[in-house]
Measured scan of single mutants.
Amino acid sequence: MMAYMNPGPHYSVNALALSGPSVDLMHQAVPYPSAPRKQRRERTTFTRSQLEELEALFAKTQYPDVYAREEVALKINLPESRVQVWFKNRRAKCRQQRQQQKQQQQPPGGQAKARPAKRKAGTSPRPSTDVCPDPLGISDSYSPPLPGPSGSPTTAVATVSIWSPASESPLPEAQRAGLVASGPSLTSAPYAMTYAPASAFCSSPSAYGSPSSYFSGLDPYLSPMVPQLGGPALSPLSGPSVGPSLAQSPTSLSGQSYGAYSPVDSLEFKDPTGTWKFTYNPMDPLDYKDQSAWKFQIL
């Protein structure tokens, strides 16, 4: 009977010793046993002879290597770790002494450095960015050149030099007046198309007034536009458009034309069986010896 009264063996659950049927240790109110408190290391007290050895090595170098620390530790009968900690504390003490010396050398008012006064946003004049500046400075420094007289040679050079070769001289006033084509001369031969040399188009003023001019072949195509416009036809070669000034309004060009419109200028042929003959000019830059190549039959 006494065997049943004795408590059973101890069981360990999660490293906790349980005594038989008792489960009081598993209750929430019972805390787990805490780790033992780490003991504080005792402070090391250095003797005068030990301090002399350490100070002598510190005077040589503030960062001794492990071999120098072990050698000193053997002399003063201390572990190497204590020597390492002593050098660490000695360097910190040396830095603190240097900072105190710097503070003593500075004057009393030198510690508080005078800061520059901050400028207020409204006091300083700042350039306004509302208006974009002129990058080319046209509004201040540029002045347009004065327009020359209508009959000045410089204007003629600016007008005619675009179309004339570089080897030719500017046309005088008398020749510029001949550039304007007359109405009857352009409409006299509506079906004849003559190819003149390129030099005649640039230099010869008579080429624009003769039936064999460069633009005589364009007349049949330009004249039928007159009834559609409801007024006189516009002429690209009329009046002052080739003269001194090219800047004319469309209203000033509306009254200039080749001449009176005639039914002869239409595109319809009077004789459907007729042929169109292209007159060959020996001055043509295209060297075609066979003139029969310039004739064709309209079917």
Results as ranks from 00 to 15, higher is better:
164 S>P: 01
151 G>E: 07
248 Q>S: 06
120 K>H: 01
268 E>K: 10
289 K>G: 01
244 P>D: 02
178 G>R: 12
35 A>V: 04
235 S>E: 06
136 L>Y: 03
17 A>N: 01
39 Q>H: 06
294 W>C: 00
77 N>G: 04
208 Y>I: 07
176 R>N: 03
82 R>N: 11
159 T>F: 14
15 A>W: 15
74 L>D: 14
223 S>R: 12
168 E>K: 11
92 A>Y: 09
66 V>T: 09
123 T>Y: 00
60 K>H: 05
244 P>C: 11
168 E>R: 11
55 E>W: 09
164 S>R: 08
103 Q>S: 06
196 A>F: 15
68 A>S: 00
47 T>G: 08
53 E>T: 12
291 Q>W: 11
21 P>M: 13
142 Y>N: 06
171 L>G: 10
245 S>N: 06
205 P>H: 07
173 E>N: 12
244 P>G: 05
275 T>W: 13
23 V>M: 07
238 S>A: 06
133 P>S: 07
149 P>C: 02
90 R>W: 14
297 Q>V: 13
148 G>F: 06
237 L>F: 08
279 T>E: 00
91 R>V: 13
26 M>S: 03
53 E>Q: 10
143 S>G: 06
187 T>D: 02
85 V>D: 12
129 T>D: 08
210 S>V: 14
128 S>G: 07
74 L>T: 08
96 Q>C: 05
258 Y>I: 07
265 D>C: 15
299 L>H: 00
289 K>F: 11
192 A>H: 08
87 F>G: 13
74 L>N: 06
138 I>Q: 07
141 S>E: 02
101 Q>F: 11
232 P>I: 14
186 L>T: 00
195 Y>P: 00
97 Q>A: 11
146 L>S: 10
157 V>A: 00
134 D>I: 04
135 P>M: 05
102 K>R: 07
186 L>A: 01
203 S>P: 05
46 F>H: 12
85 V>R: 07
143 S>I: 02
61 T>L: 10
132 C>Q: 08
64 P>D: 13
142 Y>T: 08
159 T>Q: 02
144 P>H: 10
291 Q>D: 00
252 S>K: 13
65 D>E: 10
175 Q>A: 08
84 Q>V: 08
3 A>P: 00
28 Q>G: 08
76 I>K: 15
294 W>M: 00
43 R>F: 13
56 A>P: 14
171 L>E: 09
208 Y>K: 08
255 G>Q: 05
110 G>I: 08
10 H>L: 15
213 S>H: 10
253 L>K: 10
43 R>W: 13
243 G>E: 02
174 A>L: 10
278 F>M: 00
103 Q>M: 05
213 S>M: 12
213 S>Y: 11
209 G>R: 09
56 A>E: 08
31 P>W: 13
78 L>N: 14
288 Y>P: 05
298 I>S: 00
170 P>L: 06
31 P>V: 14
176 R>Y: 06
